[in-house]
Design a protein around this nucleic acid. Structure first.
Lengths: 224, 224
DNA sequence: GTCTATAATCAGATAGAC
DNA sequence: GTCTATCTGATTATAGAC
């Protein structure tokens, strides 16, 4: 994604302070803000892809910068650390999750839950689900101090947790299971190694893999 | 584990070549071999514990050496690389698995499978199950060139795979599921993040966590 | 804000004395 | 085989010119 060929290049002359203040300022600020946001989005997207591919520890900031096509020092003007970059990637997928959850058509709570898990697994198979190690303490600290991350996680958990309780109340999910355990089990499908193993086997399409794991998750391995 | 206070310390005098050859040699060789193996076991055990605690990427060879109480250079006399050390840790748990599988009392194949998964999860909760990232390619290469690892993995997979097929033939497991997918799903319980999350929650004992996850694995989340 | 160049640190691996 | 001391390379992060 390049920002060199802009339709507004003709406005790049120096402006007096008066001109800036009276009329040009709002436009320029908006334009620059857009460019800034677009570039940051490009950085986050590259980081997200590399996090999905290699994981946090094996991903290097050099790779992200090279992928975006900027210098590493420039990247550090946008994100203060590798951890903050990873956090931004997580916030991005949580935003995508918020959008997805908001556009889900009405259905019974069990189908809603299945749709969410299906969406997470498709994201992982597409290489767009960043995988962060739960063991890295500096990363955990950064995430726990990131309001956007915590808010996004809470929003998703509230929504999904509500469906879990409804499904249990309606007898669609096993009511003996603690709701929090169900939530964790669903979230864990976003980084389930079985998906990758089956994909490496090459015997099944992505859709088949998703439905297979979805089935074992909700219905178990035992005959019904 | 220290090797400094040995009951054979009195034999530490220099020996002439003749003495070594005639009578001391066989004893000394055996003793030295025992010491060597014991020290290597200590290294592997420390590595295994640290791998379970921090994972491969965050574990450092310095930590392993410090944990054992030897210099890093000494460790490298036993294992040629960090990857080889991790492989040895995996071989160790595969050996433990072989022993466990061999001593399982006869039962129907489904109960055998449940016993295996229970054992793996108990090992993880006890902090004795090394966790290796499936993404690290240099580690994968080392593992795939390690005969002991491949043999151990094959032995376990054959045994467990046999039970899976029997269980499916008897209608105890869903026969529509590919056996290999079932095998992966069971193996994945050894590194299931849900175990750690539930443990961190502090609401359940290890036994409760194991039975909870065992239940969702085999019976699913849905009401039966 | 972007770049080149570099600092600072850390971790895997090795040299060489004993 | 074990040790101390060191090498080597990679990686996070920054300084300073433009």
């Amino acid at each position: 994604m390049s920002f060199n060929s802009t339709p507004r290049a003709g406005r790049r002359q120096p402006l007096t302070a008066a001109t800036r203040d009276v009329q040009a300022a709002p436009v320029r600020v908006s334009f620059k803000t857009q460019m800034l946001k677009a570039r940051e989005d490009a950085i986050v997207q590259a980081a997200s892809r590399l996090l999905a591919e290699k994981g946090f520890d094996l991903m290097t900031v050099d790779q992200v910068a090279a992928d975006v096509g900027i210098a590493k020092a420039s990247l550090y003007k946008h994100f203060s650390s590798k951890e903050a970059l990873a956090a931004a990637a997580m916030v991005q997928v949580l935003d995508r999750a918020r959008t997805f959850l908001a556009t889900l058509p009405d259905a019974n709570p069990l189908d809603q839950l299945k749709a969410v898990v299906r969406w997470m697994m498709q994201l992982q198979l597409a290489g767009e689900m960043p995988s962060l190690p739960s063991q890295n303490s500096s990363l955990r600290a950064t995430l726990m101090n990131n309001k956007a991350y915590l808010d996004g996680l809470m929003a998703a958990s509230d929504r999904i947790g509500g469906w879990i309780e409804q499904a249990q109340a309606q007898g669609l999910l096993n009511p003996k299971l603690p709701a929090i355990a169900v939530l964790y089990t669903l979230y864990a499908r976003a980084c389930d190694p079985v998906l990758d193993f089956l994909k490496m086997g090459g015997q099944h399409s992505d859709e088949q893999i998703v439905e297979l794991v979805l089935g074992t998750c909700f219905d178990g391995l035992v005959s019904r």
